[in-house]
Simulated assay, not measured.
Amino acid sequence: MTVTELAFFVGASGPVTAEGTEVINQAIEVQTEWSTRNAPSMPQGRENRGVSFLQQIEDPSVYLLTAHWASVEEHNLCIAAPENRETLSKIPPYFQVDKIVYFHLKDVAINSTSGKNGEISILQSPIISVGRLTIAAEKRQAFEQAWNEVKGILEEFVKPNVVKNGWRLEKENETTEEFVLVAGWPNLEKYRDFAQAKDFERYQSVLASFAQTRDLKCYRRIL
């Protein structure tokens, strides 16, 4: 099993400066070097590890860091490493530490495609949408069945970009689950046009009928 880290950051006073972005860049480099030393069987290098740093379009003070790990335990070992902790100590002037939220998804490779000719991976997409849906725990199976019936609507619309989805591994409570939906887009216009697409209402009705809360935002990659 591999897991994908999603870590959300909020700027200390709006969008971060180039210096703040460089601190994240240094942290990424430290973690990449740690992975090379301690997890040699895993894909190496930023692109192969699904590493990216994204800036939200709706609120440019919000950022998203992604990376692939062999397991949650491996990621936690990296976090605890002295060299990583030293780098992370440089974050507070640029980001609100108390608002950092991170979790993992199982087997959601955002740096890969199905192998079909011409497909564009999520991390190579100019625009990346991230949807977070809260689903009642007892409705997870029913939602998965309904989602499988309508996900093709979105997948067909975004081609040659791709769609990935998965469940948050770390539960906030026992009564709800979080479903995360990530898609690549060529531009914001295409993203906005989806609301006018054929069968969009059927797609939307499934999400609306199950989701207790929904949060959908767009990002651009900056690292």
Rank of each mutant, 00 (worst) to 15 (best):
D107Y: 00
P82Y: 01
W34M: 04
W69L: 06
V51D: 10
V101Y: 04
V72H: 03
E58Y: 03
W69T: 11
I91T: 10
Q44W: 04
V101D: 12
L64S: 10
I57A: 01
Q56M: 13
R49Q: 12
N48Q: 14
L105R: 08
L54Y: 09
R37W: 00
A39C: 07
R85I: 10
T66K: 07
H75D: 05
Q44I: 02
T87I: 09
Q56G: 11
F53V: 10
F53Y: 15
S35I: 12
Q55R: 15
W34N: 08
V97S: 08
S52H: 00
N76Q: 15
N84H: 12
E83A: 11
N38Q: 04
H75C: 05
K106S: 09
V51F: 02
S71F: 01
V51E: 13
E58M: 01
I79Y: 12
A67C: 08
E83T: 09
L64C: 14
N76Y: 11
S41Y: 03
V51Q: 14
T66F: 00
I57N: 05
V101Q: 14
A81W: 11
Y94D: 06
S35K: 15
I91S: 01
A39F: 06
S61E: 13
P60C: 03
S89Y: 06
A70M: 11
H68C: 04
N76K: 14
W69I: 10
H68G: 10
F103I: 05
V97H: 04
Y94C: 05
V72Q: 15
T87D: 02
L105M: 00
G50N: 05
M42W: 08
S35H: 13
E86V: 05
N48E: 15
Y63K: 11
Q55L: 01
M42S: 12
S52Q: 03
L64R: 07
P60S: 11
P82F: 00
K90S: 06
E83P: 02
R46E: 12
P92M: 02
K99R: 15
A80P: 06
S41C: 02
E83V: 02
P92H: 03
E74N: 08
T66V: 08
L65C: 08
V97K: 14
L54T: 01
L105N: 09
S71Q: 04
K90I: 01
